[in-house]
Amino acid sequence: MSGARLELDGIGKSFRGLRAVHDVSFDVPAGAINALIGPNGAGKTTIFNMIAGVYRPDAGSVRLDGRQVSGLRPDLVCDAGVGRTFQIVKPFKGLSVLENVTVGALHRRPALPDARAYAADILMQLGLHDRRHQAAESLTLPDRKRLEVARALATEPKLLLLDEVMAGLRPTEIDVMVTFLQELNSRTGLTILLIEHVMRAVMALASNIVVVSYGEKIAEGTPAEIARHQAVLDVYLGEAEPA
């Protein structure tokens, strides 16, 4: 797999007249790791849902390697090369860990044995291989977060959308996940966009950060630039100290 370039061009979305996201544009270059940050309720997950096809944007467009994906159904967006995790994890509870990831792998490997072998390989990389026969509902929260990542990766995406996969993890677990993502990115060139509140992970991973507040983009830049950005500081100090 290799990474794809993501372009958001003036996308917006309202719910029953309430403006959730307005005129947000940014690019994620192929092979980059970028972060999307902002206070709770700023519209980050709504942006993810527009990229992943859950919502159709009211305005603007989303392109992957120049091809328009906004307005496609989620399964077709996945087909185009976008893998995503859910902020509130959504494992297939009754299925085993291995079967969870196998479902993802089946997308590009229609034969069940191939898909299962590929899924096992991904579980190995994420350290879930020992638990592969356990039911997904018996996993702890950090393991469920890893399962989300594994299942998304199994679809062999060119762009991976990670929605707060570090939340609830202990500092050592965060470091493990950060290392895994860095290694994955440098080995495969997979493009990654992450929503994250854990600043330590954001600073370690992201080459570029986009900040949204009240549904609008208020800043974009390198971690160093964002750390000094007045508007960003205002937003965060107005709410709470970032973790």
Binding site: F92, E99, V103, G104, H107, A152
Partner: peptide, 26 residues
Amino acid sequence: LESRLGRYWLAIREDPEAAQAVGVPV
């Protein structure tokens, strides 16, 4: 059950939204 379709069904049964996100044409 031992086919792609069968596994897709199980995924839909467990969580249709997550299934669609991993490419299942629900």
